[in-house]
């Protein structure tokens, strides 16, 4: 745990150094940190042996919360928790339904529900402006209307701070009775019931937590890119989250951010040139990681450094 924390600290330092040295990467890194927070949620569910193919719906919920509310209430420091709150409420509603299911049902029901949200965002044009999306109104920070450069730095700092906060919380959670019970769902769910514990409730807690993190990530994306579209909630976005989780390695909270930063950097440099084959490359790499490096990037790094994941 201490070694993991050290690596995270070094990682944060490196990110900060990169952001200072190459200012335009700040934007990319902010998005990567936001995605990493959402991926932490995927990681929780993977602990229980479950995978959600619709998790971007919570990202979209957070992002649209910002887009809808910002004109009336532009305070970023309120918008961020509100996005988490609304995503959490949606997570509770959806979760009460999906935690009754496991495996393929869990994955596909999440996908189906996210498709519903996506199609509503796309079709309810008078509310959402459809695929054009919504331009996010300029936000204030603790009441201050900051110049653009300062705002970018602030968003980077907020994303880094929240990443550290949620990373720490998730790491603690995975070692707690709740987290260990969650992992028990994967290997011997029946035993939880024999212990008098509701496996559904254990999974629901993780699901809502993951939805909140998805929502927070969505608010950060919205405040950084200043433009939200239904695409944020499309299945390809959900696929990306799953991809990052596996790429980074499901073994550690640090893996989520390792995967997210690697993913976003590669995307900035490569995605434009292979736009039509982007999903294909992701799918191919995903297969390779699953079949040949199941520990992901974190597994490789931890192996090198002899850290117990």
């Amino acid at each position: 745990m201490i070694a993991e924390g050290l690596i995270a600290l070094v990682g944060a330092g490196v990110l900060l150094a990169v952001a200072i040295a190459v200012p335009w990467l700040k934007f990319v890194l902010t998005i990567a940190l936001a995605k990493g927070i959402a991926v932490l949620g995927i990681l929780l569910l993977l602990r229980a042996g479950q995978v959600s193919f619709g998790h971007a719906m919570f990202l979209a919920t957070g992002a649209y919360t910002v887009a809808f509310l910002a004109p009336a209430m532009p305070e970023a420091l309120l918008l961020i928790p509100l996005g988490g709150l609304f995503a959490g409420l949606l997570g509770l509603l959806v979760g009460l339904f999906v935690v009754r299911y496991r495996d393929i049902f869990f994955g596909m029901l999440n996908l189906a529900i996210s498709m519903v949200l996506y199609s509503l965002l796309e079709k309810l044009y008078h509310l959402t402006k459809g695929t054009d999306g919504i331009r996010v109104a300029r936000a204030t920070y603790a009441g201050f209307d900051l110049p653009r450069e300062t705002q970018e730095w602030l968003m980077f700092a907020i994303a880094l701070g929240l990443a550290a906060l949620f990373g720490t919380l998730v790491a603690a959670y995975l070692r707690s009775p709740m987290g260990r019970a969650l992992a028990g769902i994967k290997t011997r769910e029946t035993r939880l019931e024999f212990l008098g514990v509701s496996a559904r409730r254990v999974l629901l807690f993780a699901y809502v937590a993951s939805a909140v993190m998805g929502g927070i990530a969505g608010t950060l994306v919205a405040l950084t890119t200043r433009h939200v579209t239904p695409l944020l909630g499309y299945w390809t976005s959900s696929g990306e989250l799953v991809f990052i989780a596996i790429l980074g390695g499901a073994g550690s909270a640090v893996g989520a951010f390792l995967g997210a930063v690697a993913f976003e950097l590669v995307r900035v440099y490569a995605a434009a040139s292979v736009a039509d084959a982007w999903q294909m490359i992701l799918g191919g790499v995903l297969l390779l990681v699953i079949l040949f490096a199941p520990g992901g990037l974190w597994g490789i790094l931890a192996g090198r450094l002899k850290v117990r994941a």
Partner: peptide
């Protein structure tokens, strides 16, 4: 699930 999902992406 992950493997067939990867195939789907491809």
């Amino acid at each position: 699930l992950l493997v067939t999902f990867a195939l789907f992406m491809i």
